[in-house]
Every structure is written in C-alpha cells, then in structure tokens.
Simulated scan of single mutants.
Amino acid sequence: MIEVLLVDDDALTLELHRTYLERLDGFHVAAECTGARAAVAAVLERADRIDLVLLDVTMPDGTGLDVLRHIRARGADVDVIAITGVRDAEVVRQMVSLGVSQYLVKPFPFAMFSERMNQYREYRQRAREAAGTPTQSEIDALLGAFRPTMAAPLPKGLSGDTLERVTADLRAHEPVSAGESAQRLGMSRVAARRYLEHLVAAGRAVRAPRYGTPGRPESEYRWQA
C-alpha cells in the first residue's frame, strides 16, 4: 500500500483528493495537512510511513517550495507530486530541481489524476524490479514511467466514464476478450470491443489472436504500460 500525505490549505480540495485516492487501488491517505509547517512536521515525524506527498504550492504559512527545501535539507527522500493552481515557469523549475516527480495543475478531471497516480504506482513497481544493477532498458523504463501520455480523442459515441471502467477491467484481468469484459461490465460485446480497440489505437493496449478456443477466431487484449 502506498501511504500518501495530502497537503492543501483548502478543505474542499483535501476532501476531493481524498475521494479520488479512495477510488484507486493501492493508495491510502496516511495524513492530511493544511499548512506548510504542518507538512514539514508530518514528513519528518513519519519519514518511514509516508511514501508520497501530494503538495500544494501556495499556503498561508509558507509555500510548497519552503516545504521541499526543509525536508530535503533534513534528508527526507519522500516522493512528491505538486498539485497546484500556480503556473509560473520558474516555480515549476525550482520544484523540479527539488525533486518533484510531477506537476499537476488544478483544476483537473479524475481521469488525469488517475493516470498520474497510476504512473507513480508503476514507477515504484519498476524501481523495485530494477533494484541492484539494472540494465539500460530497465533504467529507461524507470525514467519513462512518469512520462505523460497523450490520450487519443474519444470517438463519437464513447464515454469517458465507461472507458475508465473498461481500462480498469483490462488491467485487472488481462488478457481479456471483448466478450469477457462485456460480461463483467454488463455491456454488449460490440461496445466492449469498441472501447478496447480505442485503447489499442491510443497505444495503451495491444491486440493478439487467442488460440485454442473453439468456434471463430477471437482476439484478446493486454494492457501496455
């Protein structure tokens, strides 16, 4: 389980991010803070229990930059993703120089939040797999885990919410056929195939023939990270 510290001075934003995280597998909100000083204290006191900080930049008693400078100076190597409405290029540069993994600009839809959190989860998994003396390909994959992907535009008739459901089903049960996904999600086989083919077109899934099944040839789909 990835333990997350939420830092934002707005209570509604904290609630929103908590709700978003509760919809994702593998994440748990360890603590919440509404100020910079509290965030520094929380990180330093729970250094062995916090894996990730979702950090606001602008707060009444300091900035996200202040938080990062303090915790890095004290040797805390916790992962940090900035979540803020600040769009200043110099702030972005300084945040990155202090070890921010990603910079997510508010407001954003759940789909974008989910993608970035899944990228982070993949990064941690790849980091564990590449422990020791990783190969060049493992290093490239690790560095590429945070690289944002460009989503293909949804064709007419496809729903973003349904696409999220199909994507989650694919990732949980791969390899899947359109029929299997349709049965689990309560939709038609034709509709499930449209969503799966969209993921293939977007480079997020791969299609291959499924051998050894009776009747006409069937395709199966696998998630492509």
Rank of each mutant, 00 (worst) to 15 (best):
D169N: 15
S177Y: 00
P175W: 03
R184T: 15
E174H: 15
V166D: 02
L154C: 04
Q183L: 14
G157W: 11
R184N: 02
S177P: 01
S177M: 10
M187D: 09
T162S: 08
A168D: 14
A152N: 12
S181M: 03
G160I: 03
M150S: 06
H173N: 15
R189F: 07
A145N: 02
L185S: 10
D161K: 01
L163E: 00
A182I: 03
R147G: 05
L158N: 03
P155C: 05
S159Q: 05
D169A: 12
F146L: 14
L185Q: 10
L170T: 06
L158W: 03
T149V: 11
L163Q: 00
D161S: 10
V166M: 12
T162H: 06
R189C: 01
V166I: 09
G179V: 06
E174T: 13
L170K: 08
A178Q: 02
L185Y: 09
P148M: 08
V166F: 07
L185T: 11
L154S: 11
V176C: 10
F146Y: 00
R189H: 13
E174R: 13
M187E: 11
R189K: 12
K156I: 13
A172I: 07
L154W: 07
V176T: 09
R147K: 12
F146W: 02
L158E: 04
G157F: 01
V176S: 05
H173T: 06
G186N: 07
L170W: 01
T149N: 06
A172C: 07
L185N: 12
S181C: 14
G160W: 00
R165T: 04
E164P: 01
A182Y: 01
D169T: 07
R171Q: 14
V176H: 04
S181I: 00
A178C: 01
L154A: 03
M150G: 11
Q183S: 11
A152E: 13
A145Y: 00
L158H: 02
M150P: 01
K156H: 08
S188I: 09
L185V: 04
D169P: 05
D169E: 11
R171S: 02
D169M: 06
M150E: 12
Q183G: 04
A168Q: 13
L185C: 11
K156F: 14
G186D: 00
A182Q: 06
